[in-house]
Amino acid sequence: MEELKSAIIEFLEGGKTKTKFYFKDIEKAVKQKIPEAKTLQIKKACSALINDGTLIYFSTGSTTMYGLKGRGITEDH
């Protein structure tokens, strides 16, 4: 779990101008780093990072993205 979490954060911190990512992009990056990672585990790790306040969701209403809290344009601009 901790390994997955740090892989997720590493990926999100690597974005230059982008600060919001689809789950699929996160999943792909994590699986590149940790080939044995399962999709469901990655989702659980994302949820855990949401719950501890590291990540936030960002939604268009129809699709949802993940971002690091405090980075980029977020709620109540």
């Binding site: 949401i50 719950n51 960002f58 709620e75």
Partner: peptide, 17 residues
């Protein structure tokens, strides 16, 4: 205008800004 917020803590849906 649209916003990006999703509302309540821990949920990724249910609220539209």
């Amino acid at each position: 205008k649209h916003g990006g917020i999703v509302g309540v803590f821990g949920y990724g849906g249910g609220v539209i800004g």
